[in-house]
């Protein structure tokens, strides 16, 4: 799988940007993440030069970049950089997203090989992961827009539509699994599960939510001990369900 979209984190505080990048990399090890944080003297603030350098550096490696900014003035600096160099604006886009949640969501989506649009949308939808009642409809509709999981660029890995003529018959499978994690399918297990499902290349749902979407999984609000229904359709649906049930029941290596 090729990761074509990188992130640039523009923040007033270098430790904050670095910490956010660390958090995002934990779930998305292959995504290029560059920070442009702090002013010229290393104090709190933003710097146009640092933003330009980070954008140029990231775009030297990947085709497209999604930019997150921490406060209004950081966003203004990014827009000024785009105005000074319109070529940058064609390959980079600033999203209106919460800094930490947006960076994590964008990185995980980029890790799955998604296009810039989908990475940007996942960052913007991440605002719904904060607060007492996630807006499930919005999260789901944005998940619907994301590209087919993993590997659609390689013919051998293309997602099978149900009933498509293949060597193994396309089929459906359903099973239940019990959530083991104390905090349910929170960010880390959701990211691990979403990544694995994307790699499987078979559409899988958990209680109806797209299991390749971190946000959709987190929005289920699952709790320890809850039973969920895992369903898949496509080639080796049963194998995919087994993998997902195994991961959920395995507790993702947590207590």
């Amino acid at each position: 799988m090729t990761v074509d979209v990188g992130l640039v984190l523009v923040a007033h505080s270098a430790p904050m940007a670095q910490g956010t990048a660390d958090l995002a990399r934990q779930m998305a090890p292959d995504v290029v993440i560059r920070c442009a944080a702090g002013d010229e003297d290393g104090g709190l603030g933003t710097s146009l030069d640092r933003v330009q350098d980070a954008l140029a550096d990231a775009l030297g490696t990947v085709d497209g970049v999604v930019v997150l900014a921490d406060l209004g003035s950081a966003a203004l600096v990014v827009e000024a950089a785009f105005e000074l160099d319109p070529a940058l604006a064609r390959r980079a886009r600033l999203v209106s997203a919460p800094f930490v949640e947006g960076a994590v969501a964008a990185a995980v989506t980029a890790q799955q090989g998604a296009a810039p649009d989908a990475v940007a949308e996942s960052a913007e939808a991440a605002v719904h992961s904060i607060g007492p009642s996630p807006v499930l409809e919005l999260v789901e509709s944005s998940a619907d827009d994301s590209p087919a999981p993993a590997g659609t660029h390689a013919s051998g890995e293309t997602v099978q539509a149900p009933g498509a003529p293949t060597s193994g018959a396309a089929d459906e499978a359903t099973a239940t699994a019990q959530i083991r994690n104390k905090l349910g399918l929170h960010a880390r297990p959701a990211a691990l599960l979403a990544r694995s499902v994307a790699d499987l290349g078979v559409p899988v749902t958990v209680d109806g939510a797209d299991a390749s979407s971190v946000l959709a999984l987190m929005s289920l609000g699952t709790v320890a001990g809850q039973r969920v229904t895992v369903a898949a359709r496509g080639t080796d649906a049963a194998g995919a369900v087994d993998v997902v049930v195994g991961m959920i029941e395995g507790g993702f290596g947590e207590e």
């Binding site: 002013d39 010229e40 603030g45 933003t46 710097s47 146009l48 030069d49 209004g72 003035s73 203004l76 600096v77 827009e79 000024a80 000074l84």
Partner: peptide, 13 residues
């Protein structure tokens, strides 16, 4: 734009 931090740099720039 390069030397004024905060919002003022990009705005005045």
């Amino acid at each position: 734009m390069s030397t004024v931090g905060g919002a003022s740099g990009p705005l005045y720039g």
